[in-house]
């Protein structure tokens, strides 16, 4: 999970969405200020990296925080 967290931090910083590492509790929209364009951009990178789909099969899966997103990636990686 830590490696995933690092990976996410790297892409967030690479795209200049954040300037330093983000905490697990940070909310994607309210705290990190990610708009739909930003979220879809990082989702694409994650999907490409792990060859998974982040498409929600169930809307309760929609990630709100960094931790939700990492859990979703982990789940899809199987």
């Amino acid at each position: 999970m830590e490696a995933l967290h690092d990976f996410l931090n790297q892409i967030l910083i690479k795209h200049e969405y954040v300037s330093s590492a983000v905490t697990l509790e940070a909310k994607l929209k309210e705290d990190l200020g990610l708009d739909s364009l930003a979220i879809l951009t990082i989702a694409d990178e994650i999907e490409e990296e792990f060859d998974i789909s982040l498409e929600a099969e169930d809307l309760s899966e929609v990630p709100k925080t960094v931790s939700d997103l990492l859990n979703l990636i982990q789940k899809r990686k199987g």
Binding site: L28, S36, L40, V62
Partner: peptide, 8 residues
């Protein structure tokens, strides 16, 4: 329609 990342 909400997407996989919409603030519901």
């Amino acid at each position: 329609p909400p997407s996989s990342f919409t603030d519901l």
